[in-house]
């Protein structure tokens, strides 16, 4: 079995006075694609922010490749090889598509080349000189994924990449995710759509009220559909 890349233990997180994460426990092994499933407000985004260091009030343990990151600043965590693709995509409207793509510095070897990114997302190349604000939702998502693939990150945190996208675009995102996996990247994916998730992921953690309440592999999803629907409120 591959070794653990990310180990989250008893992770607590707060926004001001409100206690949001109540002791999250899960792990992701090298090369795995693991999802966090859970309904709106369960704390999935907050978990990703805590791993990235963007949630300032956090306690417990987040070990990345053996390094404890719980009290590290986000830019230090990024330099270890963690990258976040935020829920709102975070495309900069003051920058062109090209500038957006080249903004994150290459932090380590093994990142994708521009040619590889062009092959993965051919639509982006056509919009090279446009302002980031002029992209469609799907294009923004592709750009958000593409720009962190250049950096050589080994753990990619993806927050609901398919949210609000048309089925054709969801297909393309799915292909991109499978390509990431084929290249050996480790992915922690937040999803509400477990049917989509089961087609790309190895394992799933179900999150409720800031805690992991269940765990299953993709093969087990089919047998647990009703239970999942109840959990996710869909």
């Amino acid at each position: 079995m591959p070794e653990t890349l990310l180990k989250v233990s008893d992770l607590h997180g707060w926004y001001g006075e409100s206690h949001i994460l109540h002791g999250m426990n899960f792990e992701v092994r090298k090369g795995e694609l693991v999802t966090l499933l859970g309904r709106n407000g369960a704390g999935k985004t907050t978990t990703l922010k805590a791993i990235m260091g963007l949630l300032r009030q956090r306690k417990g343990s987040v070990a990345f490749d053996g390094t404890e990151t719980i009290s590290m600043a986000p830019h230090k965590i990024a330099r270890l090889g963690v990258a976040l693709c935020p829920e709102e995509r975070g495309i900069f409207s003051a920058l062109t598509v090209r500038e957006n793509l080249h903004l994150p510095p290459v932090l380590r070897e093994g990142g994708m080349t521009e040619a590889e990114i062009d092959t993965l997302f051919p639509r982006l190349k056509e919009r090279w000189g446009n302002s980031g604000a002029k992209l469609s939702g799907g294009e923004q998502q592709m750009l958000a994924i593409a720009r962190i693939l250049r950096t050589g990150a080994t753990l990619v945190l993806l927050d609901e990449p398919t949210e609000g996208l048309a089925p054709v675009i969801v297909q393309q995102i799915r292909d991109a995710l499978l390509e990431l996996k084929r290249r050996g990247l480790t992915v922690l994916l937040v999803e509400q759509n477990f049917r989509f998730a089961s087609t790309v992921a190895d394992r799933h953690y179900v999150v409720e009220h800031g805690q992991v309440v269940d765990h299953m592999t993709s093969d087990e999803i089919a047998a647990n559909t009703e239970r999942l629907e109840a959990f996710l409120g869909v």
Binding site: I77, A78, P86, G90, F92, A94, E99, P104, P105
Partner: peptide, 23 residues
Amino acid sequence: KLGAYLRAATERPEIVQSFGIDV
């Protein structure tokens, strides 16, 4: 490039920092 970091950090500092830049 330096200016692009500045413009980006003006919009969304936390994202720029998550790229490994000491915002």
